[in-house]
Write a protein that binds this DNA or RNA. Structure first.
Lengths: 339, 339
DNA sequence: TTGTACGCGTTATCAC
DNA sequence: GTGATAACGCGTACAA
């Protein structure tokens, strides 16, 4: 079989340097010493021919791709920028490459995953981008996985990195209650199957309970962690519902923006009439008017940590089965505080 | 040489299905017909063994990676989410994978590019993530490249995708002049070596010229396309400068946010005292208070288009040397309009 | 310290 | 329509 190949191979370098391919390989991978004289000639030849090792050939020979994968549900939300950024930093520092792909768990079942053991050494899985079966399947084959914002399937021990949701939410809602005297607090929930969303709802309920405020199902609407949805639902709520309220806590900052907009358009003043607080502390939250009181989620750190976990996994180190990163309440103006 | 290999190969499938590896390969790649009987047995064997073709082996044999690369300067700015999203959509649709990496042109020269012909079939290069030499170098080897938000080096014809900056800026600034009677318009410029930034400045100057407003160097400050920088510079301007002004045009929305904040903190009302307009139309711009008048940059479309260009390049189709995507003025409240 | 030769998993060529 | 087998470019056990 004859195949044209415009690229320069290790063989060309070997010929140019007057040594064998094995020596070239050794020099490149530092897998053994070569004499200074030879090293110099190799260096020169590489420079001369502009040689770059062919990744695929390397992968095939070493059984390692030096690539890690990241599976996301989508890339639209501003939330993903810091996440990917954190991951990419670690990956690059380790001399690896990053393959990103989107995939929703409800995709047609017969679809091949774009990322897996066939093209990466390990992967980071965001929340519900994968079905539980698929996660288990990959994990059972010994493929290194780290979960983000999602807990390990029952009975398995797959490392996961997530953040403290409930307690921070509870404290923030309590802030609305005790420091601002709010008692009728509307909760804007996220997707029902999202773990973060669930914990935040529990935190909200906990706060009510702590202060003997009866929970009112009327005071919960669905924002789906999407600004537009939250906006629409809020508008609808304002039109339809007779239920009065004096504060809004949203499971995410993105929704909070939509909520504030709906409120302002309806003539409410934030925070004078209605206190508003969110969760995430997106980069823009501090710049809103009024600046948004929220919970800071260390999203870039989540990415960074998950990547580090994955590399620990790859190098056979011990890995914490679950890492819960601390969150922090950020008091700004939208709750009613003067800061 | 003995090597453990937990993964199932095409040979295993061949044995299981009772045919040769060649037939399996043909079936998988649809490169030739196989009898229905055989097809069924293969299908079964693949299912049974959970076979997935090894990417690296494929790459080595076909000389194609089915991966395209994206080189960015960073991933922090909200601007990148839609860009990557658009690219990813096309890439996935084509059955390719996406490798992303960050790289700043001023990195140490001896550093190996994380992405190149050694691990991708082609790449998309964002603005100044690469030095001109490197671009030329890659291109000279026949490696498919598409440039984003950056023009082709002189004398070369590398496809590029960018947006219309100058005219839209000019019209928007003219809107401030003619519809709102502004004459002392502060310009917040971006990085000096950024082409978008340069064109927007030209548009700003053009508008002044069109209306016989003398340009005043005092009325230009540097925001570097970064919110924090713009904020600081604005604060400094307000403290130091005696120059009066009645409007601010920023080269990007991110800076506009910082500007508005500085203005409001200093006691100015936007837009009553000062009109503000930006450029980009970030997803959040409509939700600011006041909603930001700006120019819509079709960032996701830029990504999508660049990816399509690249695939045209890969398939040997004719490719437009330069694609200039139209932008559109978005009038909201921050300029003074009632909408 | 260096060279030879084989294998990594797949595709593609040639024969049947 | 199917099978045998030589590449693809590199790493590495083994020999020298």
């Amino acid at each position: 079989m004859t195949r044209r190949s415009s690229s320069v191979t290790i063989r060309d370098v070997a010929r140019e340097a007057g040594v064998s391919v094995a020596t070239i390989s050794r020099y490149i991978n530092q897998s053994a010493r070569v004499s200074d004289d030879v090293a110099e000639r190799i260096e020169l030849a590489i420079e001369e021919l502009n040689y770059v090792p062919h990744a695929a050939a390397r992968h095939l020979a070493t059984q390692r791709t030096r690539v890690i994968g990241l599976l996301l549900t989508n890339m639209h939300n501003d939330f993903f920028a810091p996440l990917v950024s954190g991951i990419e930093a670690v990956v690059q520092h380790q001399g690896y490459n990053l393959l990103v792909a989107t995939h929703r768990a409800d995709s047609h079942l017969d679809i091949q995953l774009p990322i897996g053991s066939h093209n990466t050494d390990g992967m980071i899985v965001f929340a519900d981008s994968l079905r539980e079966d698929d996660i288990i399947g990959l994990h059972r084959n010994g493929f290194p996985i780290v979960l983000i914002h999602r807990s390990t399937p029952d009975g398995y021990e797959i490392p996961s990195v997530t953040i403290e949701n409930k307690d921070a939410t509870c404290r923030l809602v309590e802030h609305l209650i005790t420091d601002h005297g709010r008692k009728r607090i509307l909760f804007v929930r996220g997707p029902a199957n999202q773990e973060d969303s669930q914990w935040r709802e529990l935190g909200y309920l906990q706060a009510l309970e702590n202060h003997d405020i009866p929970r009112d199902p009327q005071l919960i609407i669905c924002g789906e962690f999407e600004r537009e949805v939250a906006y629409r639902e809020m508008v609808k709520f304002l039109e339809d519902s007779q239920t009065d309220f004096d504060a809004v806590f949203t499971g995410d900052d993105d929704s909070a923006i939509g909520i504030v907009n709906a409120l302002v358009e309806a003539g409410y003043r934030v925070p004078e009439d209605i206190s508003v607080a969110g969760f995430d502390d997106l980069r823009l939250s501090a710049f809103l008017t009024p600046p948004l009181t929220t919970v800071n989620a260390p999203t870039e750190l989540v990415g960074r940590t998950a990547a580090e976990q994955l590399f620990d996994l790859l190098t056979g180190k011990d890995v914490d089965p679950i890492i819960l990163l601390p969150t922090e309440i950020v008091i700004r103006r939208s709750c009613g505080c003067f800061v």
